[in-house]
Design a protein around this nucleic acid. Structure first.
Lengths: 210, 210
DNA sequence: AAAAAATTTAACCAGATGGTTAAATCGGCG
DNA sequence: CGCCGATTTAACCATCTGGTTAAATTTTTT
């Protein structure tokens, strides 16, 4: 039914504090800062407003913690895989599989990040986003090498990465829009999204043929 | 500075009513139903709250009108091009150019549609979305024909369309996220997005080679 | 200039929401 | 049992926000 991931900070596992945090995580990610109500978070955690404010003083602080957790969970995972020590072709394959799985389990996360930055750019870049993240330099070099060796068709490494990301993330995030544009039922869409992993991989490798 | 499009209902052009509607359009699309405040819309239109409520009774009604305008402006344009009477290859080329332009001028629109459906699915599908939109059957047939003739590599028409859509829309919509993932400055991103049209087209046609 | 329409001012209301507080209650534990 | 921390209850407050209203003021029309 609800197959979205919930974060776990091991030390506090199963504690009330953790239950509240998980509830906040879910509500904030789905509805955003403005759309989320403290009462709804309390309900979702199975407690009341008083206790909610007892554990987390203010909505702002709670949101800040959740937002930090979201981005600290989302980006390092990607970074790690994209910069891993692994042949380019294999890396792309694993990346597509891994990333489609990841986004399928957390379909609201990309929307949450983009939306909140759009609505409150200042706070987000000040408080939530950490130090400058390292660029995927190794991946870029791998692509350039593969091009130089003639293993793949000449292509801009950055555009390749963005193409891969786009084809993995967008269909899952834009699910409600696809339903309209493609005129598909919810069931049809489920089947369609399951085919994506193979379809995206074959599309990419076809585009990369020399 | 602000290159987002504003809708124009010709009859009322330049009227106060239109100025208010345009302001509402801009604020709602950027901040969503919950994030938008009536006072902000009034400020943006250069009037006061009383007059705002004089022209548009309630926030709900105003939002409903804006949302309808957004989707009635967004989807038919796509539908028309994708179902046009035109050779497949040419159609894809024009579609990429047209769609990247369209989204660049309205970068918040896709996010708005997806986000609002996620937050208020009931209202949106009841009141905003019109009758069942026609599927892109002709496009699908064109792809199947091209495959049968061996002009392009075998591929699922629906996945092809979603791939094209993804590569056009996602990078523009996810701009704030790309900044983080790719570690690019705002200026670098502008240059990067300008290269996209050519880059996407060549990627697609490379993937379609038999 | 007079009349009519558009717009502003300023006050107000009601409901929702974030947040607080003190006392009561519950639950485990020595 | 009796203590102690966790949790609930219920009342309360301040603020924000959507919405209304009547009168005053400005602008447009006649």
């Amino acid at each position: 039914m609800d197959n979205t991931e919930k974060p776990t900070t091991p030390e506090l596992a199963d504690s009330t504090e953790q239950r509240i945090f998980d509830a906040a995580h879910q509500v904030f990610v789905q509805k955003g800062l403005d759309g989320a109500k403290m009462q709804e978070i309390a309900d979702h955690a199975g407690i009341n407003k008083a206790l909610l404010h007892y554990y987390f003083r203010t909505k702002e602080k709670l949101f800040e913690m959740v937002a930090k957790a979201v981005i600290n969970r989302a980006f390092p995972a990607v970074q790690q895989l994209i910069e891993a020590d692994m042949p380019l072709e294999q890396k792309i394959e694993r990346f597509v599989d891994f990333y489609i799985d990841l986004i399928s389990r957390n379909p609201f996360v990309p929307l949450f990040i983009i939306g909140e930055i759009n609505k409150h750019p200042d706070q987000f870049f000040e408080k939530i986003i950490p130090a400058a993240p390292p660029r995927p330099e190794r991946f870029f070099r791998q692509v350039e090498e593969a091009v130089a060796e003639g293993r793949i068709r000449p292509i801009s490494p950055r555009h390749l990465l963005v193409n891969v990301l786009s084809m993995c993330v967008f269909p899952i995030v834009a699910r409600p829009m696809l339903r309209i544009v493609m005129g598909m039922s919810s069931q049809e869409l489920n089947l369609f999204l399951k085919e994506r992993k193979e379809e995206v991989k074959s599309f990419i490798f076809a585009a990369l043929r020399p």
